[in-house]
Nucleic acid binder design. Structure first.
Lengths: 215, 215, 215, 215
DNA sequence: AATGAATGAGTATTCATTCAT
DNA sequence: CATGAATGAATACTCATTCAT
């Protein structure tokens, strides 16, 4: 079982088990969508890459858009999964002694996840602006759920006096920008550079927590 | 003369003056590319929106990709223009008494510029990943020129003891992430929110400079 | 047992008894063929409407055309059945004292039959022009058998001096036109009108027999 | 200029003049639609027969159905044209001294027209049942206009005591059936038979007027 | 400079049919 | 006997591009 296979199994562990061909279609679609974008990828190309007949794609996915959605949707769910579990606050309480710890843990966790699913992440951020359906899902999940969770966290640590007393949305925005900035630089913009991840994350979090000014 | 017109005149002040039709084509293309993406936009659609014959587009732009490039390329140039002027360091010396001032000025300046060219910025960031030609330009200009300029600036202020002594690339990355994070949130993700730009920029820069930890 | 079922049983009482699924396939095919035409109906559509798997259709009918033929063929047979029984002339002799009586009886009988099988009749007349196989059958049966039978009848009544002395083919043509004209108007063109069948048939036969001129 | 060409010019004498290619497309479509039916005819087939690129068809006709409509619609108009002229009653008064004369003239006139447009007539009657748009047009024109005109005529001659005193709709139905029965037999069912048109029309009208009973 | 008819390769999707289960 | 996954050819229609006017 290849890496691709495992990734796909992991991500698409839905009720219905996927057939071998279906997995190949998904893998081919993911590869092409990530590389050239959804619109610029033809179904015939996917079929060829997957080694199946073009009709086979449409037996499993009613339309090309359907195929996209069924790729991106679970990805989005998995991506935000850690933040939407119940008892998130208990997890917090027990696990992290400081906001810094929390941020570091989160970066490491999500970075590891994305590292294994970079193509999917790419598709996600590239297609959300064009697919109202995805945009809707994104707003519903990220905006409503993740943002609110983060808000709780921020306010929790603000109450403990660990973080600055600014509106939580501003704090969340800068934090998220910093994290995504790291991920995008690391894996999409200059993946070929010589990254020492541990140190770089350390530095990033340090700047985020203590700013650019020296003390 | 409409806003669109002015924007186009401003952006495309190249050697060759643009005919009326050409401007209309550009305006139509920008609108459609931004809305649905380059690949998903057809030339016939652009022609219709611009009120010209299909053939007219190809009289001015050899191919559809040509049209894209001739939209995105000058945009990229203008975007980074302030950073590639000669004597950038002198400008620095004279104008900004601190890194914080510099960052604030830069955000304000570039935000104002992007505000007027949000569609173009959208196209820029959405199409760069798919168009090798643009990617090349981007790397050439941003990576080589802007990055190096920034490096000089960072090191200048590091020497003055104004900013923390970390590798400049890390500092630049976090700084850029913070700025783009602001712009993207402000204009693309949640433009409908009630933003108080002055205050929000103030906060953003504050966090960037002094971190999330209270002192 | 539904009406559909009875109709199908009645019509397809061939050697091989039909399974439940087969009946459903036939019913679905008849409905769709009548509504949208043979060519415009897809086998998957029939399968869905019949509640069977696509493959099941092809287990019973080698091709889609096969399905059509096996629907239309028995219909054609039943439609002309009364005219091809042996000893048709004896039937004549005994039952009808005049050509008028004969025509009236025939209209009533065939009208009743068609009323119950209007969809099939529709398919019959709509597909005959396009299916050489059906056209052949039609010519063989109608032209050769029915026409000849009618000819005998016409000549029989001509000999008795009951009908005008014109070539039988002309008489048959006008008679058939009148009858089909009634059926098509009644059931296909304006079925929604308020028809008093008994009176209308009476009138139609009257005009046919005695013409439009008053005496 | 070929016969086909003349027929097409005659029939499609609309505002917009047709290009050479457009005429070829129409001719090819008419031929194929008549032969195999609208649904069973592919656009690629039409293109090949017309000697044009497939795209050319869609430049002139937005969809395949559009092509059908633009063939059948003017046909329908021309077919019923003689009955919808203004001052139809005056025409009547002056030209025909009896209903028989009128019927005979009408058959001759319309027969001649259909003779030259048999393919179109075929398409017309074959596709009306399946195309709601055509059905609508048919009902609007035939039902409302032609039927009403005929009604006037029938009542006119009834008042003159020339035709039997039955409801006009019954008289019209039988008359129309007889006429279409003739045309269909003559040109569609058994065109290969040895028809003496003049005599046959004479006989048909005779039967219609005076019935099958000898006097 | 501008047009728009024409193209033919390409598009997503549907089709009738097969076949291993 | 019935299934439904799989096929590949065919479908209606769109595409970027050309070119004579």
């Amino acid at each position: 079982m290849s890496d691709q296979d495992k990734m796909i199994d992991e991500l698409f562990d839905q009720v219905d088990v996927l057939t071998e061909k279906q997995k190949k279609i998904l893998a081919a679609a993911i590869e092409s969508f990530a590389e050239k974008g959804y619109s610029a990828t033809s179904t015939s190309e996917i079929a060829k890459k997957a080694g199946v007949a073009e009709g086979t794609i449409f037996r499993h996915y009613k339309t090309k858009k359907d195929l996209l959605i069924s790729i991106v949707s679970p990805m989005m769910a998995k991506l935000i999964a850690p933040f939407v579990i119940k008892d998130f606050d208990k997890v917090l309480n027990q696990n992290y002694e400081s906001f810094e710890e929390f941020i570091k843990a989160m970066i490491e966790n999500r970075t590891k996840f994305l590292q294994n699913n970079m193509q999917l992440f790419r598709i996600l951020i590239q297609e959300i602006p064009f697919q109202p359906e995805l945009k809707e899902q994104f707003k519903e999940h990220i905006a409503k759920k993740v943002f609110n969770r983060f808000k709780e966290v921020v306010e929790y640590y603000q109450a403990k006096g660990e973080i600055i007393d600014l509106p939580s949305h501003s704090i969340i925005r800068v934090t998220a920008s910093t994290i995504f900035g790291y991920i995008i630089s690391r894996y999409l913009l200059v993946p070929e550079a010589d990254w020492n991840d541990e140190i770089e994350i350390e530095r990033t979090v340090h700047i985020l927590m203590h700013g650019l000014s020296p003390n």
